[in-house]
Computed example of a mutant assay.
Amino acid sequence: MNPLNPKKLLLTKWTAVKPVDKQKHFLVSRVIQPEQPTDPIEQVEIEAVFSKAVQVITWRDLQDDSIWRQGWV
Rank of each mutant, 00 (worst) to 15 (best):
M1N: 14
M1V: 14
P3I: 10
P3H: 07
P3Q: 13
L4W: 03
L4E: 06
L4D: 02
N5L: 10
N5T: 13
N5P: 08
P6K: 12
P6A: 12
K7N: 15
L10E: 00
L11G: 01
L11H: 02
T12D: 07
T12I: 01
K13T: 08
K13C: 06
W14H: 00
W14S: 01
T15L: 02
T15Y: 12
A16Q: 11
A16S: 01
A16P: 00
P19M: 02
P19K: 03
V20H: 09
V20I: 15
D21V: 02
D21F: 10
K22Q: 11
K22T: 03
K22L: 06
Q23I: 06
Q23G: 07
K24F: 06
H25R: 08
L27H: 02
L27Q: 04
V28R: 00
V28N: 05
S29D: 07
R30K: 13
R30L: 01
V31L: 07
Q33H: 00
E35Q: 14
E35W: 12
Q36E: 15
P37V: 15
P37W: 15
T38L: 14
T38Y: 13
Q43R: 12
Q43W: 03
V44T: 05
V44C: 08
E45Q: 08
E45W: 00
E45D: 05
I46L: 12
I46D: 09
I46V: 15
E47S: 10
E47G: 04
A48R: 12
A48V: 13
V49F: 10
V49C: 13
V49G: 09
V49N: 07
F50A: 14
S51Y: 13
S51K: 14
K52G: 05
K52C: 08
K52N: 11
Q55M: 13
Q55G: 07
I57N: 05
I57S: 07
I57C: 01
I57T: 08
W59V: 08
R60C: 05
R60I: 10
D61R: 11
L62M: 06
Q63M: 13
D64R: 11
D65P: 07
D65M: 02
W68D: 04
W68R: 04
W68K: 08
R69L: 11
Q70P: 10
Q70E: 07
Q70R: 02
V73D: 12
V73K: 09
V73C: 03
